[in-house]
Computed example of a mutant assay.
Amino acid sequence: MENTCSTSLDALVEAFRRHPSYSRLMEHTPGLGSVVPWTVVECSHDMFEATGLVVRGSLESGTWDLCGSFRLFTTDFVADGEVLTIHGWCGEVAVRETRADRPTSAPAPDWDDLFSNPESQVRAFRAALDAYPMRGELMLRTPFLGVGVPWVVVRLGGLDDAELGLVVAGGLVARPDGSRDWDLNRPFQAFVTPRGSPARIVPVDPACSPVSVECTVPADAWHHAEPEALTMLGEMADAMAAWSARSDLVVAWTRRAAVEGLTPAPARYVELAFGTDVYRGLEIAGPDVDDMGCDWNEPITLMLPSGRIVELDAAQADRHVMVGGHDHVVR
């Protein structure tokens, strides 16, 4: 298959950051791009060739184990990109390019002194945020960051002690067109990268300290209408309650978990679309999985929030994504 998409490292990183799986994969490797350098590889198998960015897998001394299984983000076949599972032992894998966003031993610089245009400021903050050790926890609390709301850099403090920060949590306000924005009139949290100190998240109260917007960059493009975070959490709770009420399902899962080393209860909340029919539910049965997560090539069984159980052939779905929860395998 001819590759008509750009496979440069910068292009792949930018495409990956816009992809729906970005936040979930970054939770597994929060230092990706800095502590773990961005790595572009060429994969060649008997019937398959692809070039892409390694985004998940096993690490050995800070580098990817390319002889095992790993996840590859590639734009070779889909313009918006897709995440493939590659088994390194089945073919040849060659490193094409690597790069860390900044030296891992140096603290995040004061971007206020280095950049003047909005895109550069936001790009620098995002690189620092990717390396932030608590990024996974932050994304669980604010899953819509950079997707449902724009990226906003604010200036905190007065003229003598001002510093820049990226808004990462807080209240939201609705715009007339239905989009959302940060409510900077109420307390919020900002990600700051002070010179000579580690990056951190600080609480900000506009009533106690001056706050002004330095720049705003539109939210990343999203590929489908993901449910609101609170709505999704409510759906997951309803589906889990329905599953827990079925003793036969609980016993079946417990037996399987003991044999296969799975979590004590189902933990993946997934969405599958077949044309205009969309199913979102708790995966309560399906094929064996490895530590790389979902297998979308086999039938799976979902417990819907309504308590209804459906069996679906994931291989026939037009779209499939894990919208909540985590992998079943105990690490």
Rank of each mutant, 00 (worst) to 15 (best):
S34K: 15
V36G: 05
V36W: 04
P37A: 04
W38Y: 02
T39Y: 04
T39I: 07
V40W: 07
V40Y: 06
E42C: 13
C43H: 05
S44D: 14
H45F: 15
H45N: 14
M47D: 15
F48T: 15
F48G: 10
E49P: 08
E49A: 06
E49N: 11
A50W: 05
T51R: 09
G52N: 03
G52P: 01
V54Q: 06
R56D: 05
R56H: 06
G57N: 02
S58R: 15
E60F: 15
S61A: 12
S61V: 07
W64E: 04
D65H: 12
D65V: 11
L66A: 03
C67D: 15
G68K: 07
T75E: 08
D76T: 05
F77T: 10
V78L: 15
G81N: 00
E82I: 10
E82V: 11
V83W: 01
L84A: 15
I86L: 07
C90V: 09
C90W: 15
G91K: 00
E92M: 12
V93L: 13
A94K: 12
A94I: 10
V95Y: 08
V95Q: 08
R96Q: 15
R96C: 14
R99M: 10
R99I: 04
D101C: 08
R102H: 07
A106G: 09
A106C: 10
P107H: 08
P107N: 07
P109T: 01
W111S: 06
W111D: 04
D113F: 09
D113V: 13
L114G: 05
L114S: 06
L114F: 05
L114N: 07
F115M: 08
F115Q: 13
F115I: 12
S116G: 14
S116V: 14
Q121L: 09
F125T: 10
R126F: 06
R126L: 13
R126G: 08
A127D: 14
L129V: 00
L129K: 00
L129S: 04
D130K: 05
A131I: 04
M134N: 10
R135Q: 02
G136S: 03
M139Q: 12
R141D: 02
T142D: 13
T142N: 12
P143S: 09
V149P: 03
V149W: 01
P150T: 05
P150F: 06
W151T: 11
V152N: 01
V152R: 01
V153N: 00
R155Q: 05
L156Y: 05
L156W: 07
G157Q: 00
L159E: 13
L159W: 06
D160P: 10
D160R: 15
A162Y: 13
E163P: 11
